[in-house]
Design a protein around this nucleic acid. Structure first.
Lengths: 208, 208, 208, 208
DNA sequence: GATGAATGAGTTTTCATTCAT
DNA sequence: TATGAATGAAAACTCATTCAT
């Protein structure tokens, strides 16, 4: 079989596996479920993947790669004003939502299933999370340096918080019952929270 | 055996199960591990719990109950000013952290293991999250009504965001490698983000 | 279960396994065959042995132990005359035959199946064979020293030859179709060959 | 494809199979190993042999044939004196050693692997052994008839013993660690044992 | 009530063989 | 004729659950 065809079949199995894993969860998925889903013999699976764990690793890596791509394509230092930064946050948020929109259940796979499967996978997830944290931190760092973010901002912790918000949004929007309007509400609410907080304008000074 | 003794033994098994589940994860835990951990016969387990899933449900419910207790004891309408609300947020955060501090691995059990085990458990987790969302929403509602929070605040989404931040904090602090100082940083960063946002004061008007 | 009962059950499974292995061969034997043969559940087997290979090792070791015992109980230096040595060879032969008589197919297991299964088992067999070789060599050594065996005897090679003859006898007599008389013929033929050779008395000098 | 080419390809596969079987053993050898070893498609194998067992039968038969050839070319009745017979034994021994020298691992295949594979193969091996026994018996018969061997010799059992010695020699010399000198020691030790026994000359009469 | 030996359904994985190209 | 992708039967092994003592 030519290299390209083999690669394509592997890809097909990968996609099928992602779908079945996402629907049933890792432990409830049998290799035979994946094979059945493709109307393919059980043995065929093992021509393309070493084991059930192997294909799960591949699926998770794929998802991580796509997600990582989203921020890898943005520059942490390009924003020169709060306004530009706000637009950038919105852009990143939209792209992450889009990344998971393709298959909403993948978020569950990544955040919920993966860490429980193997230490190796858990470590990879932590790494990706760390990567996200560092990236977001770089954005905040840039904002502080340029003067449009608070100089006393706890960049490290705040970065984790922002990421948590974004990923929670992804998780919420992964729910098949949510409508498109919710996305806009999330986008708007994130930027409002980040740049204005929750307080009424007139109350701002009183918290000190 | 008197009712009280039975209840106590059940309690002991529950605690042992929580510990073993937390350490090894649901699937890697055998019922015999739990029995061994208590130096108890395997069959005895089944006199107190229907099945492995049964005891896991009980463990998760226990954890959920403790966590729910934290906000159940607070009143959503008690805060009359932004200052009081800020203090309340801090108090809730500290109590949640404390709840998981007892056994840090329980957070993993609740957030990581539980959703992958059974649809029922997943639903329970969603319910709890929903409960948290509604609760936080009530706080925001109160703030808007009393005028110390923005009237145009998207209460539903913002509530989810706040909860996401808090739970991410819990998750981070569940890491056995984190020190106590981090807790204070989280507490401070949450309140600052909520009530001030990330922007420098002078830039605030330019985002509009 | 008391230690002694556990030990007894292990023993029963060992015996059953030996029989099934001997009849069907290692590869053609499934663990379920062994379990069926004992009218026992498949899982029970795994309470007493780690794996199919594990029980096979145990079986082979058992057989080797019994066989080794036979010569371990004889002294290589006790024979003072050719006559005594001849009697000793006969005694050892009879005991080896008897050892395998109990379960004739065990010889096949030991000599035929075992070496093909695992390197470890093969090494153990070689060790046992080496042990036999060294033992027989010691007998020959003693005979030469005492002067009742040829001084120019190649003790090492001759020891291997004698053992080969003995084990071939065992193998032949392991055939369920052989009768008891054959044992006597083997015993007699071995001692005659060893102590007289095949040549007619009158021809002896002409071979030089 | 012309008959001759087909025959040649079959031969090539046979040789490749012999090598792989000898190296890995029957059960550890996959048909794909054989095909890979020839850089040949897996399916091609099945155009020349019915099955894995089929080719193994063919390999074993080949080896048996070669070995059988060795004695087939000798005449049981040609020796007229003990001296000639002794020379003949030596010649047969050398030729057998040589036959296995070509590929030492083949001995293992024949004596160790084959009997455990199938009843049919085991029977073939017994037949060959029986053939050897009968052949050797014929030599002894001739010796007795001509008067240079003991008239009371147990020809049947002694024939088996002689063969056992010879095959043990082959087995020993199949070990890749043995040197050439050992062959000479075996040859000499066999003829000395057969024609003189192990006893010192002066002790011979006392055994009676 | 306590125990732990027994059980067998369920899963992963291998590989000889087939057959469409 | 040659190929190698596809196949699925078969086998080892695990472990939640039962039940006789």
């Amino acid at each position: 079989m030519p290299r390209v065809k083999t690669e394509q079949k592997r890809r097909e199995i990968l996609d099928a596996a992602a779908e079945v894993f996402a629907r049933r969860g890792y432990h409830a998925t049998n290799v035979s479920h994946i094979a059945d889903h493709m109307s393919m013999g059980l043995g065929t699976f093992y021509r393309y993947f070493e084991s059930k764990l192997d294909v799960f690793h591949a699926v998770i890596e794929e998802v991580m790669g796509e997600v990582t791509m989203v921020i890898a394509h943005e520059s942490a230092t390009s924003s020169q004003t709060l306004y530009e930064y706000s637009a950038q946050v919105e852009r990143i948020g939209r792209m992450l939502f889009a990344a998971f929109q393709k298959n909403r259940a993948l978020a569950r796979l990544l955040f919920v299933e993966a860490p429980g499967i193997s230490a190796e996978l858990n470590e990879k997830l932590r790494e990706t999370t760390r990567f996200f944290g560092v990236a977001t931190e770089a954005y905040l760092e840039n904002g502080v340096k340029r003067g449009f973010l608070r100089p006393d901002l706890d960049r490290e912790v705040t970065a984790l918080m922002i990421n948590a918000i974004i990923f929670e949004g992804v998780r919420q929007l992964s729910d098949p019952n949510t409508d498109e309007a919710l996305l806009e509400r999330w986008i708007r609410a994130i930027t409002r929270l980040m740049f204005e907080g929750v307080a009424a304008r007139s109350d701002l000074t009183r918290t000190k």
